[in-house]
Simulated scan of single mutants.
Amino acid sequence: MRLPLVWQLPTALLAGALIAGTAPAWADDAQADPTIPSDRVTVVLKFVKQPDDDNMAPVALLADSCAACTVLNDPALARDNRRETLVALALPARRTLALRFRAAPGAVKRVVLESGDLPFSADGDIVTVAMPPVASDAVTAGEFATHIVEPGMVLRFEHADVARRAGAYAQGAFPARQRRAADNLQFAQREVIRRTGLGEFVAQEKLGAIQVMGFDTNYPHGHTDAPPHMHMHLRWPLNAGTQIGHYYIDGQGLLTHNVVGVKSINGPARTYRRGETFTTMDVRGRPIYRHRITPEGWLELGRVAVGAAPCLIKPAQAGKGFETGAAVACARQAPVSIDVTDDLEGGILRVATGQIVETFRYDTDTGKLLSPAAPPATESNYVAPQ
């Protein structure tokens, strides 16, 4: 199949397009010079509520603690639910601040910036937060996802918590079936990436990283992420040029179509229907792997170069959707089943791959992975930084 021009952009042309979009060297407008940092940053703080304080009033900044700070009432960043209050602020950049907030006495469990905790103290209804100097926008505290990093790949597992539902999923039927389908499809794709050696190839060739993702149901930093879908894209080293597919999941837990756009390149998105093949290209213009949604709404995925037939990912139960699990079949390898369960209250993600059951423990407030990601190293195994 001949790919459209947008997928065939040579590296030199891509570089030229990026250079053409930068400010001229003689520009004397400081605001147009990206090397001059802004004096303001946007920050989102997550105030995690104590479990018995579901009805806690939203946290409010005390203006006299920072005259140079502004509260941002942007619903894409700031919100309140029974788990947490997200406060969005415009702060002076690179300043060490002591910010004071009013909150119900004893109601704040943690204060989180990005995925880490900030020190705070509470005195009655006053909570004082030790704010570190922040050089650029930090708005991802509202995310609730676990990242699993492997050679050449990052799997981002979004946790579908009804208590945190927001944005497009704030009202109406919660997409539990589609989210379960995405859970199984994500780890089924991981299994194919492992079985075909695709992750190791991407790492060795320094092509960037494969990103396997589902969809957020909590509208973090304005990420609408609807209708329900999942992803597997090769993020190029500088991101620009990354071809991002959106594999949409219907109410029966099956795949319908794939809408692909290219990061930072102005051009129309392309839709791939059932039966059509989408090929992901690397930064050198080489085809790396292919996706094809089958007429049944299943998924074929395989490497281009190795010459083997693509692996087939189909629902675990005949006549059902991927919410029942996934079955992965690759040439010359025994087929294997995938079944993913997510215990939101316990913070335990279990992934059954055939008879192998993996257990990933995560922070129930942030989604941060708590399980060890690598075996401990000893001095005799020391590897000098590259």
Rank of each mutant, 00 (worst) to 15 (best):
residue 273 R to C: 15
residue 103 A to W: 14
residue 34 P to Q: 13
residue 347 G to R: 08
residue 155 L to Y: 13
residue 197 G to M: 06
residue 91 L to G: 01
residue 127 V to E: 03
residue 295 P to C: 01
residue 168 A to M: 05
residue 270 R to L: 14
residue 268 P to G: 07
residue 42 T to L: 03
residue 242 T to G: 02
residue 154 V to E: 15
residue 44 V to R: 10
residue 66 C to D: 01
residue 32 A to V: 15
residue 382 Y to N: 12
residue 286 R to E: 09
residue 96 T to R: 14
residue 9 L to W: 06
residue 34 P to V: 06
residue 226 A to M: 11
residue 233 H to K: 01
residue 333 Q to P: 01
residue 135 A to D: 09
residue 6 V to M: 06
residue 130 A to C: 05
residue 284 R to E: 13
residue 122 A to I: 02
residue 268 P to K: 02
residue 116 G to D: 09
residue 105 P to V: 11
residue 8 Q to N: 09
residue 164 R to D: 15
residue 321 G to E: 11
residue 90 A to N: 14
residue 223 H to E: 14
residue 352 A to N: 15
residue 110 R to T: 15
residue 218 N to T: 12
residue 382 Y to E: 13
residue 69 C to F: 00
residue 354 G to C: 09
residue 280 T to M: 08
residue 249 I to M: 11
residue 105 P to M: 08
residue 289 Y to F: 15
residue 286 R to C: 01
residue 354 G to E: 03
residue 370 L to Q: 10
residue 199 G to P: 14
residue 199 G to L: 06
residue 295 P to W: 02
residue 189 Q to W: 01
residue 7 W to C: 07
residue 307 G to I: 00
residue 24 P to V: 11
residue 115 S to L: 04
residue 174 F to L: 08
residue 22 T to F: 04
residue 337 S to N: 03
residue 111 V to D: 08
residue 164 R to E: 09
residue 299 L to K: 11
residue 198 L to I: 12
residue 116 G to P: 07
residue 139 V to M: 11
residue 209 A to S: 10
residue 302 G to T: 02
residue 57 A to P: 15
residue 358 E to F: 05
residue 131 M to E: 09
residue 222 G to T: 09
residue 76 A to P: 00
residue 74 D to C: 06
residue 301 L to N: 05
residue 4 P to V: 04
residue 298 W to Q: 13
residue 235 R to V: 02
residue 25 A to S: 07
residue 157 F to E: 15
residue 294 T to E: 08
residue 320 K to L: 14
residue 331 A to P: 10
residue 281 M to Y: 05
residue 197 G to T: 11
residue 248 Y to G: 05
residue 175 P to N: 14
residue 141 A to S: 12
residue 292 R to F: 08
residue 293 I to L: 12
residue 267 G to W: 02
residue 102 R to P: 03
residue 86 L to W: 00
residue 319 G to T: 00
residue 310 P to D: 09
residue 60 A to K: 05
residue 118 L to D: 04
residue 46 K to I: 04
residue 6 V to S: 06
residue 53 D to Q: 14
residue 363 D to G: 07
residue 24 P to C: 04
residue 251 G to Q: 13
residue 262 V to D: 06
residue 297 G to D: 00
residue 129 V to E: 10
residue 305 A to H: 05
residue 64 D to N: 08
residue 199 G to F: 06
residue 204 Q to Y: 10
residue 161 D to T: 09
residue 236 W to I: 00
residue 52 D to I: 11
residue 20 A to R: 07
residue 245 G to Y: 07
residue 20 A to G: 05
residue 47 F to E: 00
residue 371 S to G: 06
residue 337 S to G: 14
residue 339 D to P: 09
residue 215 F to A: 08
residue 62 L to D: 03
residue 288 I to M: 11
residue 381 N to M: 08
residue 384 A to V: 12
residue 373 A to N: 04
residue 120 F to C: 05
residue 151 P to I: 06
residue 117 D to Y: 11
